[in-house]
Simulated assay, not measured.
Amino acid sequence: MSIHNLPEGLSVGVSYAMSQHDLGPLVSLAIGLQNVPEGLLIALYLTTNQVSKFRAFLYTGLTGVVELLSAFIGLRFTGTFTGLVPYGLAFAAGAMLFVVYKELIPESHGDGNEVPATFSFILGLISMIGLTHYLG
């Protein structure tokens, strides 16, 4: 999960460093909204595997710290590597789409959960389109 959170944090940092002032809050809100259930699932997975609640909370929090640190890195170095920003964002988007299509969708459709998983995916997509339209 820490590897997953690294490009998310970079995209938040880069978004705040860009000249569009409304882009940073929009990207951080969208990523923050998906991080809530993500963190909950990490903690639930750890506790169901006999990890203490305190350690599960600690490990879940540490995955979020990676995102915070990478956001600061993105914010700091965006000016230095301005020409690479579009390529970096495209790479991050492509990597995320690969993970979604290769791992998340097949995994979520197992064990008879096809319908709820599909509707949840559609609801999440519509929510993000709505946020982008109304806040962006």
Results as ranks from 00 to 15, higher is better:
G136Q: 08
L131D: 09
I31R: 02
L40R: 06
L29G: 09
N49S: 12
L68A: 12
A92N: 02
L125P: 09
L6R: 01
Y101P: 06
A17M: 04
M18Y: 13
K102S: 15
E38I: 05
H21S: 15
M18F: 12
G110S: 13
S120H: 05
A71P: 00
F119W: 13
V51I: 15
K102A: 15
L131T: 04
P116L: 07
A93G: 11
T47V: 12
Y134T: 12
F119C: 09
L29W: 05
G24S: 11
V12T: 07
L26T: 05
Q50G: 06
T80A: 13
L46N: 03
I73K: 00
M1T: 08
Q34A: 04
N113V: 07
G61V: 07
T132F: 11
N113Y: 13
I129A: 15
Y45C: 11
Q34W: 02
R76C: 11
V99A: 14
I122N: 07
H109R: 14
D22V: 05
V66N: 04
G9Q: 00
N5R: 04
G110V: 06
L40S: 09
Y134C: 07
F121W: 11
L41N: 11
T60N: 06
I73Q: 01
Q50H: 13
T63E: 04
T82V: 08
V27Y: 01
A56N: 07
L41K: 05
M1I: 06
G94Y: 10
Y59L: 15
G9T: 00
A17F: 02
F81A: 13
L26C: 03
L41E: 09
R76K: 11
L69N: 07
E67M: 13
V99C: 07
D22Y: 07
L125T: 15
L33S: 01
F54T: 10
K53Y: 14
G9N: 00
V12E: 02
V14I: 15
H109Q: 15
I73W: 04
V65G: 04
I105E: 12
V12D: 03
T63H: 03
E107C: 07
E8Y: 00
L68N: 05
L75I: 03
I105T: 12
N49W: 03
F54P: 05
K53M: 10
T60K: 01
L125M: 13
M18H: 09
T132I: 07
T78H: 09
L29A: 14
V115M: 10
M96G: 04
S28D: 04
A30H: 03
Y134P: 01
V36S: 09
V100N: 02
Y59G: 07
F77P: 00
V12R: 00
V14W: 00
L131S: 08
L131N: 04
Q20M: 10
T132S: 14
L6D: 03
V65L: 12
G130T: 14
I73R: 00
P106Q: 06
T118N: 08
E114D: 13
N49G: 12
I129F: 14
G39T: 00
A93I: 08
L33Y: 02
L104H: 12
A71G: 08
V51S: 05
A56R: 01
